[in-house]
Computed example of a mutant assay.
Amino acid sequence: MSRPLNGIQVVEMAGIGPGPHACMMLADLGAEVIRVLRPSEATEEHNAHTLRGRRRVVADLKDPADRDRVLDLIASADVLVEGFRPGVMERLGLGPGEAMARNPRLVFARMTGWGQHGPYAAMAGHDINYISITGALHAIGTGESPVPPLNLVGDYGGGSMLLVNGVLAALVQRATTGEGQVVDAAMVDGASVLLAGILELRPDRTWNDTRSNNLLDGAAPFYRTYRCSDGGFMAVGAIEPQFYALVVSGLGLDADLLPDRDDPASWPELTTVLAEAFDAQPRSHWESVFDGTDACVTPVLDFEEAVTHPHVAARGSLTRDAAGFVTAGSVWRDPGD
């Protein structure tokens, strides 16, 4: 089956983080991605997982001849993706004005942490910084301190996913208007969008701003992880009463003797009871008890374990590359597979 972006050409200005990750997904969806590298980057690792599905062009963007060569690529492209600080592409003579004068149908997609405008626009930053000022980082971690959620929330959830969303929306609009547009994807914006579901819980006090004191932040005994006797962990997500009842049954506990799960004041006591039950057996035991049930209880796997999990393997969610290392599967799934 033809991939949805077959025939779409993307020019990617080489960078790191969410830009390449977004272009990986566009390539997975069938786009032809041309990655423009500086001469100093010409020996980059071609087998890097996020750089799959590319062909590469080396260009010194300060050389007028090379710059014109890149403009020629842009003139026939559908999408340009760049992740420089605001103003860099303009100074190189490759900004939206120059690029879209050559190609009015171009979707000019810009990926930054802070966005193209605002007091922090010209400042350096990383994922941890972008999510810190949105409230996201404050909400994640222990009662003692916030804990960075890897760089999944800012760079990838709020960054590359927002960029791909903007590119696809712009391509849909172009099909109607015939005109391209500038997509300003900022990680600080994307991280804020990801918070929508949590923020809507605050007005009725279903969520408060004290860390580790809420339904989804590890405080609830039915939505957290538990250590097993062998040091492994099980993840419990039994929010609904009927799922929670299956957890209690699987653990061999008497529901009538347990603290009230719906009373947050009882959560510490109930957590202790459940923790003791899980700690009585190795992870493999609990996997066999809860596998295939609606208890919403699953093992916490490391990457080497995850790639061999029957469901992950069946979906191709994770795979191994030619060297045997674990890599992310393609976002494209042929319906016939």
Rank of each mutant, 00 (worst) to 15 (best):
V11G: 00
G15T: 06
G15M: 05
G17D: 10
H21A: 14
H21S: 09
D28M: 14
A31V: 03
I34K: 05
R35G: 06
L37R: 13
L37N: 14
R38N: 08
T43V: 13
R54Y: 14
V57W: 12
V58Y: 06
V70A: 12
L73D: 06
I74E: 03
A75K: 10
V79R: 01
V81C: 06
V81R: 03
E82S: 06
R85P: 10
E90I: 13
E98V: 15
M100L: 07
R102N: 08
V107G: 01
F108L: 02
A109D: 04
P119Y: 10
A122C: 11
D127I: 08
G135T: 11
A136L: 07
A139F: 13
I140A: 00
I140M: 02
G143Q: 10
E144H: 05
V147I: 03
L150W: 02
D155A: 01
L163T: 01
A170L: 02
Q173P: 00
Q173I: 02
T176K: 05
T177W: 01
E179K: 12
Q181T: 03
M187D: 00
V188R: 02
V193R: 12
L201D: 04
R202S: 14
R202W: 10
T210N: 02
N213S: 15
L215N: 07
L215T: 10
G218I: 03
T225H: 13
G232I: 10
G232K: 14
V236M: 13
E240F: 15
Q242D: 14
F243P: 08
L246F: 09
V248G: 04
S249Y: 13
A255E: 12
P259H: 13
D260A: 09
D262H: 14
S266K: 12
V273L: 10
V273N: 04
E276A: 15
F278H: 05
F278M: 08
P282V: 15
R283L: 11
S284H: 13
H285V: 11
V297R: 06
P299W: 09
V300K: 03
V300T: 02
D302T: 04
A306P: 03
T308K: 07
R315V: 03
V326S: 00
A328I: 09
W332E: 02
R333V: 13
